[in-house]
Amino acid sequence: MHYVYILRCADDTLYTGYTTDVERRVSEHGAGEGAKYTRGRTPVELVHTEAYEDRSTAMRREYEIKQLSRARKERLVGDAEW
């Protein structure tokens, strides 16, 4: 499976990424080994995930989410069912 995920960083910003292993990737971000953006913004909290069968669909969705306004991302995160 391929996943798109959203993290809430310590400074209350949202980071969107792609991975095949959400748990490992969130752990990397939390340890300061993830994306450059999240390195100085730890701790991070996983607030949203979406699963896809193929990489290209997941990557397209990641791009779509990254184009959303902050308000739209907050609504997406708020609508997530855990």
Rank of each mutant, 00 (worst) to 15 (best):
Y3L: 01
R75N: 12
R24H: 05
P43C: 14
Y37C: 04
R60P: 01
H48V: 00
K66H: 12
E64Q: 14
T16D: 03
K36W: 12
A31S: 14
E64I: 15
A71Q: 14
R39G: 08
S69F: 05
R39C: 10
T13E: 15
Y52P: 04
R25K: 08
T20H: 04
T20Q: 12
Y18A: 03
V22C: 05
H48T: 00
A35R: 09
Y3D: 00
T20C: 09
R39E: 14
A35N: 12
R25A: 08
P43M: 11
E28S: 06
G32M: 11
V44R: 06
V26Y: 12
G40F: 13
D21L: 02
L68A: 02
T13F: 11
A71Y: 04
E64N: 11
Y18E: 07
Y52N: 03
A58C: 08
G32S: 09
V44S: 06
M59Y: 14
V4E: 05
T49R: 01
G30P: 13
E53Q: 06
M1W: 07
V26N: 13
L76I: 02
Y63H: 15
E50M: 05
T42I: 15
T49V: 07
E74N: 12
G17I: 01
T13C: 11
R72M: 15
A51M: 09
T38P: 08
G32L: 14
V4C: 00
E45L: 13
V77Y: 05
G78H: 03
D12A: 11
A80T: 02
G34L: 07
M59S: 08
A71N: 02
Y18V: 00
M59D: 10
R75L: 13
V47R: 02
E53I: 05
R25F: 01
E62N: 05
M1H: 08
E28T: 04
V44H: 09
I6S: 09
E74Q: 11
T57P: 04
D21V: 01
E64S: 10
Y18N: 04
Y3C: 04
V22G: 04
G40D: 15
H29R: 11
A35M: 10
E33L: 15
G40L: 13
T38K: 05
E74W: 08
R24Y: 01
